[in-house]
Nucleic acid binder design. Structure first.
Length: 424
RNA sequence: GGAGAGGUGGCUGAGUGGUCGAAAGCGACGGUCUUGAAAACCGUUGAGGGGUCUCCCCCUCCCAGGGUUCGAAUCCCUGCCUCUCCGCCA
């Protein structure tokens, strides 16, 4: 959520910056609601004041044993007026809140202009695309060859976009999560966290998945209005919802391994083959909560932490900065890490690291006490995948295959899979 | 699933329907004292929002949402959450 003062005092400039994201701000509608809000709020509050003063004087008169009947008569008329004004105010505030809830975060100044992922800008490359002296297969062929990756049985059990892993691949999948968690907790100083995989609407609103992206979420058939998490960002970031954090406790750094559930309603027909885009996948997620001045630096560090995993696994990748049009709803600035997939002969997203600045903090009332002002102020929140486990598994399969279709386990994982150096 | 208790400020914890945004204590901050610190003493100390907004004024908030009333932290209803005991269970 944007600062409503920004919307009030700087709406033209805000609208321009939102254009970079391809968002059309409805200036007239907002201005109209806002001026209505102001009028009716002032009216309501002055009526409330009037009532408070009168009621107080009734109390005093009664205490002195005076006749309160005339006073009662005087105040009687106020009730209806107040109720009417109050109801009207509630409606306007609600309308304004709904409007504001659907405005995305404003992109940072150094976010490149562009409409789609085609226009993201590469800023770094690590390693060279793996070369083979044979025609490399993609992970689907590799998995089917050694019978450890089964999409057909998964679709019998559930439906499309699910997978069953067995034996070596299932083991590798587990080893990857352990490996990632260990690196982030032991080398990068994150607090390991276990969180709910089911959340309520409030939490999803806090991180910005709701109200706009309801169709991406899996709902639970239940009258409590629960959802399966689409990312651990939701429970992890909401850890600081409605809090005022001591300055010396910042930054907070959380890591959690969770499954993620996405209905991917908007992407039918995209990445239908293989494990790239599933309804259920595992992710190790990194979340930072920082002072506003620290978030820029934190973003670089967070991204670096995700990169370390790829480096230790020896997976070639590049870093791109997302252009305005590809930037997520809540994000002011995002770096994507894209791993090299020989099977697709392309770099594909494996991690997305974003600085949300105060956008989520405002939605979830996450604050810190600024020692300089003594006042509670909004924190900045950041998150990134470190990494998407399923896609890392694919990347290892495709980059570490040999001519026989076997997969060689990267050395960094040997401690996590004792006795297994080759799968297939 | 059954029975009971309870949700008040950073924390503990009072609060006969009428200056209660809320006693008291703790904590924190400032000051006095001290070479310094501690102790002691004095003082300050909730959040959100609005207005003709550096002064100032006003509104809202005692889990949430309704209701009764001129007036609700206090009374009534509903929901949520927490705790205790029993049952069941990984």
């Amino acid at each position: 959520m944007l600062d409503s003062k920004l919307i009030r005092d700087n709406i033209e400039e805000t609208a321009e910056r939102l254009n970079v994201k391809g968002f059309e701000l409805d200036i007239d509608a907002i201005n109209e609601l806002e001026s209505h809000r102001k009028t009716i709020q002032v009216k309501t509050e002055s009526l409330q004041n009037e009532r408070n003063v009168s009621s107080k004087s009734i109390g005093q008169a009664k205490a002195k044993g005076e006749d309160i009947q005339p006073l009662l008569k005087e105040v009687g008329l106020l009730g209806d007026q107040l109720k009417k004004a109050h109801d009207e105010l509630e409606i306007v505030k609600q309308q304004l809140h709904e409007k504001l809830s659907e405005i995305p975060n404003v992109p940072d100044a150094d976010v490149p202009v562009g409409n789609s992922e085609e226009e993201n800008v590469e800023i770094k490359r690590w390693g060279q695309p793996t070369s083979f002296d044979f025609e490399p297969k993609d992970h689907v062929d590799l998995g089917q060859e050694n019978k450890e990756m089964d999409f057909d049985i998964a679709s019998e059990i559930t439906g499309s976009r699910f997978v069953v892993l067995r034996s070596g691949l299932a083991r590798l999948h587990r080893a990857l999560t352990q490996f990632m968690l260990d690196i982030h907790t032991q080398e990068h100083d994150y607090e390991e966290t276990y969180v709910p995989y089911i959340v309520n609407r409030k939490s999803l609103f806090g991180t910005g998945q709701l109200p706009k992206f309801e169709h991406d979420q899996f709902t639970i058939q239940d009258d409590r209005g629960f959802y399966l998490i689409s990312t651990a960002e939701v429970p992890l970031t909401n850890l600081v919802a409605n809090q005022i954090i001591d300055a010396e406790k910042l930054p907070l750094k959380f890591v959690a391994h969770t499954p993620c559930f996405r209905s991917e309603a908007g992407s039918y027909g995209r990445d239908t083959r293989g494990m790239i885009r599933q309804h259920q996948f595992e992710k190790v997620e990194l979340v930072w909560v920082t002072k506003p001045d620290d978030s820029y630096d934190a973003h670089e560090q967070l991204t670096q932490h995700a990169e370390v995993i790829l480096q230790k696994l020896g997976l070639p990748y590049r870093v791109v900065i997302l252009c305005g049009g590809d930037l997520g709803f809540s994000s002011a600035k995002t770096y994507d890490l894209e791993v090299w997939l020989p099977g697709q002969n392309a770099y594909r997203e494996i991690s997305s690291c974003s600085n949300m600045q105060d956008f989520q903090a405002r939605r979830m009332h996450a604050r810190w006490r600024n020692p300089n002002t003594g006042k509670p102020e909004l924190v900045h929140t950041l998150n990134g995948s470190g990494l998407a486990v399923g896609r890392t598994l694919i990347a290892i399969m495709e980059n570490y295959q040999d001519v026989h279709g076997r997969i060689h386990i990267p050395e960094a994982l040997h401690a996590y899979m004792p006795g297994i150096t080759v799968i297939g």
